[in-house]
Design a binder for these strands. Structure first.
Lengths: 355, 355
DNA sequence: CTGTTAGCGCGTTCAA
DNA sequence: TTGAACGCGCTAACAG
């Protein structure tokens, strides 16, 4: 039959199909774009046959070049290691699927320099829009995007001076939810643990909201601990501080001074922080560490259920989905003012805080 | 300064730059491709200035169309929810970065139909090669790839009748490593738990190797349990079977019949299985489930350390890196026979199996 | 209803 | 040393 072409069996082009079907390229193009309404069934059949025979597949790049849109959108992710990110991604993919978009996923692995590179690259591939969940997003960093007039949607982050839609957790409500739960459970010494804010607005917001929520009541004491997970020494220092607090709480309980007895709880700003805390506590107090300290975290990773810690689950899937919808609207030219979409978190009570 | 361009500030093209620099497109193209050797410094300076002034960025799509290579490679992933996948991805990204490739990441979320769609899509975007870590990879499914002569590299999978390089864990050695450790620890009743094989050769291989390793010794008994995580009822049935085994082992210990007393261990074929088992055991036996059953798993997720289960860690980063290297060689035209790269796993002993 | 023509942004001859 | 012209695969006018 067909001579077994080796090396490079050059892919069939629209021209090949036209020749094979004995017609012009235009008709093929029309066929590809579903403009069947005005086309003789006979021609259509010939085209179909030719396409099948040649195993033809249109070249998206060429299409994109011509019509100025390639259906590609960029998705810049700071950290795929964080389950939150993967879950958001699920929503993004579903939405892209539904809207005929193709997400170009870029994973910066927590490196700001990498983020810059990818943003540059995306621009170069002429993506029609970008969804950004990055570490170092500043107006400056986003220059290649904003400057090029490429629509952008921020996830879990806001950048001042940048006019971009945003979708993420309602951090204020979430922090309150957590604090309220801990208070109800009778904890009177609450430590909020968060990574350095850097450009990540949600970290800042969660901390502020925590502080406000604590300020609004008189019973319990609130502290904030900034833990730089990227810096081992810094992390160790922070954890040591925590250890002291926990030990002193225990001293109180043992009756040294009943008036200072208090129940201590840790409130992690996100899953990576919570994991770090849990690992440390386990290594310090053994498998039964949970009897010493209560841990609550924003984000709801796999191991939360396994280890029984209370969490505030984010509506990750929906966050991703909405982000794409926003972006799609912008791509289609919607011009309304900047929108913020704040979705509520869900408190999932587990053993760690309800004893 | 710059007038705030609204609407669509059409991106500068090579033609714009040529005009701005008072020269022809050819010279710009030369400049972009680093052919500076033969170019008057004066012209070069003008070009540089023009590019900067226009904030010009070459259009990768157009370049690709012209020269037939767009530096895009496809990366088909069955399940980003599995930490293994994310880790492999890290290696892939690093290698791409080093080789000037851009990975197009496609996440099929465990849906075979989605895999087929993505493969088709990648073909359409004319990626230069594909790295495949999918569920339903059969010769048939890979048709769009293999048929088009696009080089492919399989990760953690082999497909018979398909000539593609492969890189992954040395499953035989890994299974042996696990069995040997469990035997040394004195377990005499070992259950290997794995998902339905489907098209995933590594699952089959791990099971076979387990069986062989058990067969090679006379002391302990080995069983295999197939757990279909995608089917709740099936999963429940499998877990119930496990429960019976565990209970009967406990009965033996209690002295009902000392001769049947045995120590039971679970050997999970991968992290998702291990997680399912751990969750079930915890809900059935409480937080102290580990005193009842030992759990060992291939893959080394976050929560393994936290929960103290023994694992066999895969060299994930290197797997990803090597995959890209293989692919790159193929893209560059290397024609050697099909290669299999089997990397060794590392046993990480934790409390669950060493008591 | 169908084919012809003219680019999309770029790289590559081939002259000048 | 430089630039003009052609074509990559495809779509969008504009005739026929």
């Amino acid at each position: 039959m067909s001579t077994p072409q080796q090396s490079a069996p050059r892919r069939a082009t629209i021209t090949d199909v036209a020749r094979e079907a004995g017609t012009g390229k235009t008709s093929i193009s029309r066929y590809l774009n579903g403009e069947m309404s005005v086309m003789s069934p006979e021609l259509r059949a010939r085209i179909e046959a030719a396409i099948a025979r040649l195993n033809y597949q249109p070249n998206q790049m060429a299409r994109g070049l011509k019509r100025g849109r390639n259906r590609l959108i960029g998705m810049l992710l700071a950290d795929l290691t964080n389950p939150y990110t993967v879950e958001v991604l699920q929503g993004v993919e579903a939405a892209c699927h539904a809207l005929g978009l193709m997400p170009l996923i870029c994973h910066a692995a927590n490196e700001v320099e990498m983020e810059r590179r990818y943003l540059q690259l995306l621009t170069t591939y002429r993506v029609e829009g970008v969804i950004v969940n990055a570490l170092g997003v500043s107006e400056e960093t986003l220059r290649p995007v904003g400057g090029s007039g490429i629509p952008a949607v921020m996830v879990d982050r806001q950048v001042e001076g940048l006019t971009a839609d945003m979708v993420g957790l309602d951090n204020g409500a979430a922090a309150q939810l957590g604090v309220q739960h801990l208070l109800e459970q009778g904890f009177d010494d609450i430590w909020f643990v968060v990574q350095p804010f850097e450009q990540v607005s949600s970290r800042h917001l969660r901390q502020t909201s925590f502080r406000d929520a604590m300020g609004a009541q008189g019973r319990a004491r609130g502290h904030t601990l900034v833990l730089d997970l990227a810096d081992t020494d810094e992390t160790a220092r922070g954890l040591a501080e925590l250890d002291r607090a926990i030990d002193s709480a225990a001293d109180g309980k043992r009756g040294k001074d009943a008036s200072t007895a208090h129940r201590i709880a840790l409130f992690a700003a996100n899953a990576p922080v919570a994991l770090c805390l849990a690992l440390h506590l386990k290594s310090r107090y053994g498998p039964d560490w949970q009897t010493r300290v209560a841990l609550l975290s924003i984000d709801d990773p796999d191991w939360a259920e396994l280890t029984g810690i209370t969490t505030i689950r984010q509506p990750t899937y929906e966050i991703g989905y909405r982000a794409v919808e926003f972006l799609h609207e912008r791509i289609e030219g919607v011009q309304t003012t900047v929108r913020d979409c704040l979705l509520p978190g869900e408190l999932i009570v587990r053993a760690s805080t309800s004893r």
